[in-house]
Nucleic acid binder design. Sequence first.
DNA 1: CAGTGGTCTAGACCACCTA
DNA 2: AGGTGGTCTAGACCACTGT
Lengths: 243, 243
Amino acid sequence: MNKLSSDERLPLYQRLRDSLAQQIANNRWRPGEAIPTEAALSAEYCLSTGTVRKAIDLLVSDNILERQQGRGTFIRRAQFQSSLFRFFRFQTEAGERRVPESRILSVEPVVAPSSVAQALGLAAGAPVIRMVRLRLLDGQPVLAEEIWLPRARFQALLELDLDTQGPLLYPIYEDACGQVVACAQESLTAETVNDVYGRLLQIPVGSAVVVIERLALNYAGEPLEWRRSRGHASHFRYSVEIR
Amino acid sequence: MNKLSSDERLPLYQRLRDSLAQQIANNRWRPGEAIPTEAALSAEYCLSTGTVRKAIDLLVSDNILERQQGRGTFIRRAQFQSSLFRFFRFQTEAGERRVPESRILSVEPVVAPSSVAQALGLAAGAPVIRMVRLRLLDGQPVLAEEIWLPRARFQALLELDLDTQGPLLYPIYEDACGQVVACAQESLTAETVNDVYGRLLQIPVGSAVVVIERLALNYAGEPLEWRRSRGHASHFRYSVEIR
DNA sequence: CAGTGGTCTAGACCACCTA
DNA sequence: AGGTGGTCTAGACCACTGT
């Protein structure tokens, strides 16, 4: 006999959606846990199953819930899975996805070049951290990354032994610096590789590489990280649907 | 008392969706025209309104139909604005968008190479039309396109003087061949340009070019056109938002 | 087996548009 | 006023999952 609190003019399925989203935000259920069954919800809120289903449909299409026939409806595990997979086909012959290893080549405190400062919304010459990283599959370099971070937020990284960490940076940002990446803007182009990156990627100078520039933001929309990645074009394929 | 022809194991709303998509592809209704009301469809197919609504929901979320409360449900006008703009920055200094001119270099009936046949869903060696086209801005080549069409659908193109037509192919497909492009899948990569395309694009052999492969489909999801376009990487930039 | 989500029905009533 | 899509009900039966 629960009550729907939000605006009475909204349809019931919308109000139920809002109520459930609120409870999810308040951790009534943990990620991976099941919410009550559709029957239980329709009893709790005195709604028909059709209305409950429509509310759940919305949360599923929002990527907040996940249905599993015969088992239940679950809170989606928050998985900021690297967008790499959308761009590079780092896969075995069998087509299974793999996270490339990470080899950090340098981490140094520097002052921001003007282009980087502008991307990160800092004053020119502001203190930043510059990191160069190589991603490898089976020992073969596939991606070379240049990463820039505002030092004010990421000072702790300089005192950390990054080699002992996993291959993903964003969990480290979260654990060591309390900085949570919520979303990112990426921008894609191609170029022929120069000698520096040719050597890093172990490909001939003049090969075609794809260049990905990414600005990562926190939930408040503030820039956290700017990176430029280069990878051999033969590892690269990006697909879109157009309507 | 219409019959749903497709696979009996599929849910009714799926089969109705397919049936409607087929009729839309066959021009039973013109773009902008209304389809029968939900009540009429549920009578015609002997389905409840809930099932009909669900089928229409799918077509709406596919961007094929458009609901207007109190008025009806309408075939969406295909605004199919060339996706070129999303990928290539063909713009004046002022930032205004321009459609590049089209220069058709060849149109010839050939048999399909196996890769093309596979993309178009044809048997290997099936009759197709191969077209080579150059897109130019201010007389400068910016994009070289290789276009493959199933001859069964596009025979009429061979008897047409394409030079007298506009720079966009899809309106020609529609007017001359009755083939309506509803959506497309594009896939993007990069390579260093060979001598043939280097000469076409008037750029040095070995420059980085972006390669776009596109499969265009009609409303029934049947392949209509496969094309591969190459353009100089410096004209190319693609942006994405990642949640 | 019992319990879950997935499909489907045959309505009712409402909000909105056109005339 | 009459017709449209939008919301909602109170069920039924099915397909799938776990024990």
